[in-house]
């Protein structure tokens, strides 16, 4: 029983050290989970900010698109003006030719005006082309931005789920820690109980030993206890005390005449 108690105590000690190791591991895990949770929350915030930014960019693209359309309209007006200026210049040239010698200077002016009109027409056409290209590009960019928004929103919700899961993990880790604490307490109780058991069994062994010694006083017919020498046996009776040896002398033959007795 003493050996068993010793083994139990040893086991309890091993359990305690294991529990300590597990406890420290869980604590590490807990801090990691905490870090994860914080990171997830921060990522969620960043994702939300990014989503808002992209919405803003999308709005800006829409506005820019409108502005480009407006520019295209204005360019059309410029183009029309240039065309009309061209016609006016041609008319002016014809009028100048009809005026003959007096119209020579005016003809030069008309020719210059016609050149300017052509130049502005060309510029208008170029601007129109550019604005068309820009319109297409802005439309494409806006579409891309609009497509990205749901992805980012999905990311934000996923990150939120991660944060929630991290919270659950933290609760789980806390429960594990509590369970390990309880286990540690039980282990300590076991250890104390085993120690007590060990002491009790040692006491029991010594009691049994003294009982054995006490009972060895008896010499039994079954010679199991012959290994205890006779000299070790206690003696209850002091043999030196001799029984009283009072000699009772009955004076039977004091008077042998028999006269006091009736004979049968």
């Amino acid at each position: 029983m003493s050996n068993t108690a010793l083994q139990i105590a040893q086991g309890a000690s091993e359990q305690a050290s294991s529990a300590e190791e597990v406890s420290s591991s869980v604590e590490e895990m807990q801090s990691t989970i905490q870090q994860n949770s914080e990171n997830a929350i921060q990522t969620e915030r960043t994702a939300n900010t990014a989503a808002k930014g992209i919405i803003d960019v999308s709005d800006a693209a829409q506005q820019s698109l409108n502005a480009i359309r407006l520019i295209a309209d204005k360019i059309k007006i410029i183009n029309a003006i240039a065309e009309k200026t061209d016609i006016l210049a041609i008319n002016a040239a014809i009028e100048a030719a009809r005026a003959g010698e007096h119209g020579k200077g005016f003809a030069v002016v008309a020719s210059e005006v016609r050149k300017l009109a052509e130049t502005s027409q060309n510029a208008a056409i170029e601007i129109n082309e550019l604005s068309t290209t820009s319109l297409k590009q802005t439309e494409g960019g806006g579409r891309l931005m609009v497509n990205i928004i749901p992805d980012i929103q999905k990311t934000a919700s996923l990150v939120q789920e991660i944060a929630v899961t991290s919270g659950e993990q933290r609760v789980g880790a806390l429960q594990i820690t509590q369970a390990i604490e309880q286990l540690s307490q039980v282990t300590q109780q076991n250890s104390a109980a085993a120690e007590e058991m060990s002491a009790t069994s040692e006491e029991l062994a010594s009691q049994a030993e003294s009982l054995h010694k006490a009972i060895a006083f008896f010499k039994t017919t079954n010679n199991k206890n012959t290994n205890v020498p006779q000299a070790q046996r206690k003696t209850f009776i002091n043999n030196d005390v001799k029984p009283k040896k009072e000699t009772v002398k009955i004076k039977i033959d004091a008077d042998d005449s028999g006269k006091d007795y009736e004979m049968y």
């Binding site: 029983m1 069994s201 009691q207 030993e209 054995h212 009972i215 008896f218 039994t220 017919t221 079954n222």
Partner: peptide, 21 residues
């Protein structure tokens, strides 16, 4: 009877001693 009892006590003490060792 004393002999029997003493033998029983000795055996029991031996058992206790072995069990608690």
């Amino acid at each position: 009877q004393l002999n029997t009892i003493v033998l029983q006590i000795m055996e029991t003490a031996q058992n206790v001693s072995t069990g608690s060792g």
